[in-house]
Every structure is written in C-alpha cells, then in structure tokens.
Computed example of a mutant assay.
Amino acid sequence: MTCFLCLQCGVQFTAAAAPPDHCPICEDERQYVRWEGQAWITPEELAAGHRIVIKDDAGLLGFGVEPRFAIGQRALLAQTAYGNVLWDCISMVSDEAVAEINRRGGLAAIAISHCHYYSAMVEWSEAFDGVPIYLHANDRKWIMRPHPAVVSWEGETRVLSPALTLIRCGGHFAGGQVLHWKREGGDAILAGDILQVTPTRRHVSFMYSYPNYIPLNAAKVLGIEAALEPFAFDHIYGAWWNQNVIGDAKTAFAASVARYLAAIA
C-alpha cells in the first residue's frame, strides 16, 4: 500500500495498492492536468531524486524541495513562545528537516493556506506525533488523504495561540486562509498565494486561477480586504522563496486592492 503523490500538484492521496484514477485537484479549473496526462510518484521515488533545502527567507526558516517539484511552494516555520507552527507544506519529509524543527522547539501544529499546498501534510504531522493540521471546513472536499489530525475549523478566524490567528479570506478557494503572526520585528501575514506577492515585492494581486488566468471578481477581493482590515501587519510572506513584502505591507496591500479593482472595472 502506497500513498501516491500527484506529479502535477504534489498532493498525497490515501494509501492504496495502485495509483488513483485521477486527481480532482488538478482537474479543477484552478489547476490543470499535465499535458502528458495524469501521473503519479511514490514518496520513495521522490526522495531518490530530490532533497529538502532549509534556509532563511527574510528572517523566517523555510523548507523547499530541490530540484523544484510540482507547484514549487516552500513551507515556513512560525516560531513563537507558545509553540511553533508549520505554515503551508511540501511533498516530502526528511530526518534533517524534522531534526532542525525539533532543535528549535518542535512543532505544535500545521496550518495550510489552501489545497494546492496540502502535499504531504499527514506525513509531516505524523513526524511530530500527530500534531493537528488546521484547514478551513469550506475546503474539506479537497482533502485527498483524510486523517484524524486534520481539524476542519469553521467561522472567520481561529486563534491558535496569543501570537497566531488563522483568518479565512476566501478568494482563490472558499476556505482560503492566511496566518496572522504577532511578533517582534513587525507583525506578519503568511499568505501562501491567497495574496499573491508580485515580482516588485511591493504589491500583491489576486486570482481565481493562476495557471488558467482567471481573475478574482471584485466582491471576493473586497471580502479579502474586509477580512484583513482588523489586523495590523508590517510584512506579507508569499508562497515562494524571496517573494515577500517586507515593511509597510498593510499600506502596500491597500494600494494593491485599489489598483486591482481599477484594473478589472
């Protein structure tokens, strides 16, 4: 029995004797099936040709897969006095990565922005004694490997600790969430691509489907703006290495919303 990984999106499926027939996440219009057709890889095959790189990203510890695999996101470690949280996820786990997190106090929980980054979330949880995985209930249908560690929370915010709060923004996915972090050095939003940091690193943008170029409508963007309005933040951390807004990020966010709404009007 093997927990196969989709080669296109990197999401892991429930253990089976043979690969699944298809990947619902890739068949959704926000993603796509690879041109060569649906394909799968085992965790062992992935580990044979890839490794986890661990490095600093604008002051946060990040974990990524090299060579680039699937969508190519990296995970971040939110280190707090109340316990550490792994934000977003990648498709493989290594002894080195687990040891590095344990050296920094271990892991209290995992939280993931949306289903494109669910990847090997269950393996990460099990590597830390089954820590909870916080996903919004609106995205429950996209969980391809159900597990008792998954917490499908409901509502608009979920406080994980005095330092960390999940905020449902919706947008890209109905349960799309970001993580607000009260911290020294400036409060931060860990955003995945619910807020897509642009190459200028002074703006964000919004899409319903990134690879298929379907923009997000005005009502959804205004919903994201309303969800974040009560929160102060100085930085926004995106989904990929070095794709962050560092300093004055709330002003940059407000300007980004106005620019986007003007562009689609």
Rank of each mutant, 00 (worst) to 15 (best):
L61G: 10
G72K: 02
Q73R: 05
A108Y: 01
V151Q: 15
L160C: 06
G106I: 03
Y118G: 02
A78P: 04
Q38R: 13
L76M: 07
I52M: 15
T80Q: 05
G171H: 12
I143V: 15
C89S: 15
V53G: 02
E96R: 14
I90S: 05
Y134N: 04
D57N: 14
D56Y: 04
F173M: 06
L61A: 04
I143P: 01
E44F: 02
P148E: 14
W153K: 08
A39K: 09
D129I: 01
L86Q: 07
E66R: 14
E126S: 02
E126Y: 08
V151G: 03
G37C: 11
S152C: 15
M144S: 10
N138I: 01
L77W: 03
A137Q: 13
G155T: 00
A174F: 09
I110N: 07
Y117K: 07
S94A: 10
H116A: 13
A70N: 11
A108D: 01
H116K: 09
G49K: 11
L135G: 00
G37E: 11
V85E: 06
G170A: 08
A127R: 05
R145F: 12
E154G: 10
R104Q: 13
K141Q: 15
P43A: 12
Q177M: 02
F63T: 03
A137D: 11
G83Y: 02
H172E: 07
E100S: 05
D129G: 01
V151P: 00
Q177Y: 00
R51F: 07
L60Y: 12
D57Q: 09
D129R: 10
S119V: 01
M121A: 14
P132A: 03
R168Y: 06
W153T: 00
A75C: 02
E123W: 11
D88G: 13
E100R: 14
H50V: 00
L135H: 04
G175I: 10
H172I: 11
L179Q: 05
Q79A: 14
R103P: 00
D88K: 06
G155E: 03
